[in-house]
Design a binder for these strands. Structure first.
Lengths: 326, 326
DNA sequence: GCTTTTCATGTTAACGATTTCATTCTGTGA
DNA sequence: TCACAGAATGAAATCGTTAACATGAAAAGC
């Protein structure tokens, strides 16, 4: 039962049915009603594939994320999906596992399926981007592309790093260990810069020894702390994200340290787990959901108006004080 | 640059190009090579939409989940996506937020977009299912549909409930509080049955007072425990999932109880957070990733062989002992 | 040497919508 | 009454593939 059958049923041409369906031209009220009735009677549903072949757009958008089992990305995905669904768009989920190869493969697949746009939280990013040179609207989230002219939404990571460090300093910490992602990913870099600037502003000397470059991985953090235990002195930890902060707290508690009495800890992201850990993890909260929501909205705007220039937004962060700091 | 252009470039007909592309018929080696060269030269990529219009399938599958920000579902989604991607399928993510209305809407949208199959972790399920009567292969995961003839993958929830309860009993618990989802969702029901049977087998009287029917929600669990604090006596908790177990542990610790000395706790699912909570949460581990992987594999099988009858599998569970029990 | 297979390829009609252009009909002003 | 504008509708081309059928040449069987 295609559009032709509906047309026959209503005693009109397929063209007219299409016009009723899309409100693309004036149709006589009586005719319109007849068509509507025919549609209802036949239970007709337009074939989206056929429609897309003609229009070269598929009412779908692609989301490329490094790791959907990470609460941060999952929350972003959820918000995006929710926002898109309101406008009748569907979402292709592409999980790269931080694998560049796979990222490129996904971009091609998405373009072949004529998605209307792509939201990108990249693993590597820089090179991948040239794959969709102007073919299609793109919004980058969280990780900034090394490229002009791309819309980008992220949080105030630099300010967050500064804020976290300042909180520890004003709580009396003087030797603050920064645990950071070993990779030079933008948000992490910004947090690190914030940390360094804050130390400077408060006349605390930056000590390279007090920076742990580790994979973003609970085990890696534990191993690092076990390795330096007894050898490295510190009274505060600023972890690049909550997962690392929690692993650090977990390890230190097991080693018999007291948190926050001996060592204070601040994380980043405000994941649920941090609030339920005992003691609660003080953290820099990103507006994670808003991050997703905005990126979806921005993408839809770009789709509606392809001439629009790139949109760049930075969402504020806030310190959430919990038991892991004094 | 469509298939026609490639054909012209190679000096053959579009049909031949199609044949080379899909290996759908014999082509002379020389011709094949010429076509391949033309494809390479022109950078031609087949239009998947046009292809799908013809084939009535889109090399995509739909995943309907209640809540992607929940680690359990996210892990399943990740495994599914990984498995599908290997076979060149893409995944539509549909997050229902346990909303039945939305679920129905999604099913329609997915059918309109000619997905090749659907993986379903339902909110309500029973009624929704009739929406795709035989139109398309479906696999249900975790929550069993009230319907014959549907493929279904889940964990041994009954055994898990039994195992958890037995562990508490053999650790000396006699008054075991079961905290369960207030809704009559299948997996939860099975865990509850396992709990009851185990009590029976060990001659412990089943006490209705010791069953907390609450929404699956951290706050709800806390509020419940605060409400019964001092009024209800128990020495063990079997929580229907780890999120509730963690919330319970968190609340009890804040109230000054000692875990596991005074109250022992067992959860379900083995989420990461449980391992890093202090004390670690003893839990019944589901093979969450395998759950996702298998359901994807089963769906692909059903797609390849539509005549195949329903496939039903139950994956084993295992107790993981941690600090929250003795 | 002639008919019959087999192989390699091409022609053409779908798939189901949208859109350009053409057509018919009604009503208005000269 | 005629010309013309404007409204409502339809016919046919198009989007880029695939598949059923047709064709012609070469190989095989008698």
């Amino acid at each position: 039962m295609g559009i032709k059958d509906v047309a026959r049923l209503a005693g009109v041409s397929p063209t007219t049915v299409s016009r009723v369906l899309n409100n693309s031209a004036k149709v006589h009220p009586d005719t319109r009603e007849a068509v509507l009735r025919a549609i209802k009677e036949s239970g007709y549903r337009p074939n989206q594939i056929a429609r897309s072949l003609r229009l070269r757009r598929f009412r779908s958008i692609g989301l490329i994320v490094p790791d959907i089992s990470n609460e941060f990305f999952a929350t972003i995905a959820q918000a995006i999906e929710d926002e898109l669904q309101k406008e009748g768009y569907n979402l292709f989920l592409c999980n790269t596992g931080e694998d560049r190869q796979r990222e490129r493969k996904y971009i091609k697949a998405l373009l072949d399926k004529f998605v209307d746009g792509i939201i990108f939280v990249s693993a590597g990013f820089d090179e991948s981007l040239d794959l969709f040179q102007d073919e299609i609207p793109v919004v980058a989230v969280d990780r900034k592309p090394n490229m002009e002219g791309v819309s980008f939404i992220d949080s105030a990571n630099y300010e967050g790093g500064y804020l976290a460090t300042k909180h520890l300093i004003s709580n009396g910490c003087r030797r603050i260990l920064m645990i950071r992602d070993e990779r030079e990913v933008r948000p992490m870099k910004a947090r690190f810069e914030g940390y360094k600037q804050c130390l400077k502003d408060y006349n605390i000397e930056y000590d390279e020894e007090l920076v742990a470059w580790v994979p973003v991985d609970r085990t890696a953090v534990r191993e690092y702390l076990l390795k330096v235990n007894g050898l490295l002195e510190f009274d505060g930890i600023f972890a690049g994200n909550d997962v690392m902060a929690i692993s650090a707290a977990h390890t230190l508690l097991k080693l018999g340290y007291q948190v926050p009495e001996q060592i204070q800890i601040v994380g980043f992201d405000n994941i649920t787990e941090g609030a339920y850990f005992v003691p609660g993890i003080t953290t820099i909260a990103q507006q994670t959901e808003a991050l997703g929501r905005r990126s979806a909205q921005v993408l839809l705007e770009l789709i509606k108006d392809p001439e629009r220039g790139p949109i760049i937004e930075e969402l504020p962060v806030a310190l959430i004080k919990r038991g892991s700091t004094r």
